[in-house]
Write a protein that binds this DNA or RNA. Structure first.
Lengths: 210, 210
DNA sequence: TCTAACTTGTGAATGAATTCACAAGCTCCC
DNA sequence: GGGAGCTTGTGAATTCATTCACAAGTTAGA
């Protein structure tokens, strides 16, 4: 398969959530134009994005909402359930652990880890907090496919190294620092400071803003 | 000024945080090569990114850490303090409100709003939760330059419309839905579901992963 | 069956971002 | 002062992503 751009995958997510929304309202058919309007893009872009994976529409008619939803879920790997561990039982970790949206999409938060003895053994978002000393062992045992890191910037790289060594291949980090992982590991970082700086940059430099 | 790509701005943020880190350790000089290694990019990319804004280095020698830090802070608009309101006093809103990293970078969370009477009047992250009915008035009064939205997907677009009407020009949303705003408003969305789907896509389709 | 009205799927064209490659400039040391 | 050794800044080349434009396929109705 040809390499797919990250931007394409992001748009597929957007299309899917739109499809699920209109599907729930009973809409049976849609068009690349509809999908584009909601996703803030163009119909050509929608068709090109989908064309990387096959042809799912009918010329003259458009796309079947249930069918395209199901194909997109499959492409995005949402067919099966994924076991997620959260590392760092702070406020954000707790908020994520109990976030219902995850569950709906097939993500099961089945473990929360922390190093603070004060937190270990207590519950966070319906899950008992485990000692981070057991994290590596649990990953090796195959308990998780995805790790979400909500730890301070100082510890983040070391934890990435640990979970990677244990065999985890997918990591989502909320630590405000740049991290590195081997190429066979997918690592995404959400950095709030960076997002805010994107805003202040725009606020400061908008003599001519598109 | 030429239009600057969002990816460039993101990298500037990375460079800055690296510069501040080594600056705190007393390092006085660095090179595009150092900056590249930490930022996960190339030295040519670093120099190109900086070249959009001027020339800050000395050939043969590199960059002065304090000087480049200060120029980047200026470019990113971090010279002045920014007043931030958080809309939605749930778990994530509370976590953000008390996040110290914001303060260090010059972001002051001076207002938290919610529509739930149970929450109004209580404190969240050191700030008293205000009635969302007052939000528009407070923005019009110039209390905030940046809004952070941690509200359910269903309400998000309506709140965007409200704060935009009130004159806010910079919005960071954590709602798991696609939002639209006029072109003179900078809107960034962090969508956890989308990030996780990026991971499951990679996990599912990695017969050949670069 | 034939035509009109649509909408997809996709090569080709364009546009944007990254990488290359090297001249220009700075420092150090003899 | 002059050469060696670095590192920047930047046009040119390349790679990657988006948009264009239209042939091909589908439906509906006469």
């Amino acid at each position: 398969m040809k390499r797919i751009a990250e931007s394409t995958v992001r748009r597929l997510s957007i299309y899917l959530s739109f499809l699920e929304e209109i599907g729930a309202r009973g809409v049976l058919t849609t068009s690349s134009d509809d999908l584009a309007r909601l996703g803030g893009t163009t119909s050509a872009q929608v068709r090109k994005d989908l064309s990387f994976f096959g042809s799912f529409g009918k010329r003259g008619l458009g796309y079947s909402v249930p069918e395209l939803s199901s194909r997109l879920r499959e492409i995005l790997g949402l067919g099966n359930q994924w076991h997620v561990c959260i590392v760092g039982a702070g406020k954000i970790g707790a908020a994520l652990a109990r976030y219902a949206g995850f569950f709906e999409r097939g993500f099961l938060v089945t473990g929360v880890y922390d190093s603070d003895p004060e937190k270990i053994g207590k519950t966070s978002g319906g899950v008992t907090v485990k000692d981070i000393a057991h994290l590596e062992r649990d990953i090796v045992a195959g308990k998780y496919q995805i790790g979400v890191l909500t730890v301070p910037a100082e510890n983040a790289q070391q934890i990435v190294d640990t979970v990677v060594r244990a065999g985890l291949k997918a990591i989502l980090s909320f630590a405000p620092t740049q991290l590195t992982a081997p190429p066979d590991v997918t690592l995404r970082t959400v950095n709030m400071a960076m997002e805010l700086e994107g805003l202040t940059f725009a606020l400061t430099n908008r003599e001519s803003h598109g």
